[in-house]
């Protein structure tokens, strides 16, 4: 009640977190390494490419001191391939997030956000967690670094529509205790869908509360025989 903000992150907060993603830039001017709290940034020497955080890249881009290289998955060909996968091949799941690279000894402990997923050498066939925010920000700050910004914009919008429709359709399979598989859903999409999906689950739980209670009681009775778990399964089958 104290804060009027809804639960979870707001879109500007998600975008703020996204700004720490590394992107590849082609500097136009020299810039020595900056000693930041998160570690030093690489020294920029034109024309060598370097990976720097998105917020710094946007700043340099605005000052015309660097060009941003869009990540491979933000190319029209890659986006339309992902869009086709979403609409034709997998009608009810989301396209998977990028695979974790195998490490030499098989003990890979790094994962996003500590793994760069939006640099020039990112995999072109998967959308990373921050795809929507990052794409929007790049399209607005650096449209001249894209070959076909309008087409990218159109594909991004299509992709967003398709995926939001899937997220909303997910409530059909929800049940008081059920779940939707949300692998591959991006940060901004979670922020957008959270209020609705949470509300639906709350409503369903309220309606199913009496049944849940009688199930619990049945379970407790079954538990007296020492088999609470099986009584649970039996009840589930009775429901069908």
């Amino acid at each position: 009640m104290a804060l009027p903000l809804p639960r979870g992150l707001t879109p500007p907060e998600v975008a703020f977190i996204c700004e720490m993603e590394l992107v590849t830039v082609i500097p136009r001017q020299r810039l020595d390494a900056l000693e930041l709290l998160g570690g030093p940034t690489p020294a920029l020497r034109p024309p060598h490419r370097n990976n720097i955080p998105l917020w710094l890249a946007l700043l340099l881009k605005r000052q015309r001191r660097a060009n941003i290289v869009p990540p491979p998955w933000l190319q029209p060909a890659a986006l339309s391939a992902i869009l086709e996968f979403e609409t034709k091949h997998a009608k009810d799941v989301f396209s998977p997030p990028p695979k974790l690279p195998p490490s030499a000894d098989g003990s890979n402990m790094t994962s996003p956000p500590f793994l760069p997923s939006s640099t020039a050498d990112a995999p072109p066939d998967a959308l990373p967690y921050h795809w929507l925010e990052l794409g929007e920000m790049l399209l607005n700050a650096a449209p001249d670094d894209f070959e076909e910004p309008d087409q990218v914009r159109r594909l991004m919008r299509d992709l967003r529509e398709v995926r939001m429709a899937k997220l909303r359709a997910g409530v059909d399979v929800l049940d008081a205790g059920g779940g939707v598989k949300m692998n591959g859903v991006g940060g901004m999409e979670v922020a957008e869908g959270r209020a609705f999906i949470g509300g639906v689950i709350d409503g369903l739980r309220k309606i199913g509360a009496s049944r849940e209670q009688s199930r619990r009681e049945g379970e407790a009775d079954g538990g007296a025989n020492g088999y609470g778990r099986t009584a649970d399964y039996d009840d589930d089958e009775m429901d069908v």
């Binding site: 059909d172 049940d175 409503g203 369903l204 309220k206 309606i207 199913g208 009496s210 049944r211």
Partner: peptide, 29 residues
């Protein structure tokens, strides 16, 4: 829905739970 769930605490109506759950889901979409 609140009225329904309160009534369901007093009455045992399995069918009503199903109908209300289904209604809520369809209308939520």
């Amino acid at each position: 829905y609140s009225l329904g769930s309160l009534m369901l605490e007093l009455f045992e109506e399995d069918e009503l739970v199903d109908v209300m759950t289904d209604t809520f889901k369809k209308r939520a979409a």
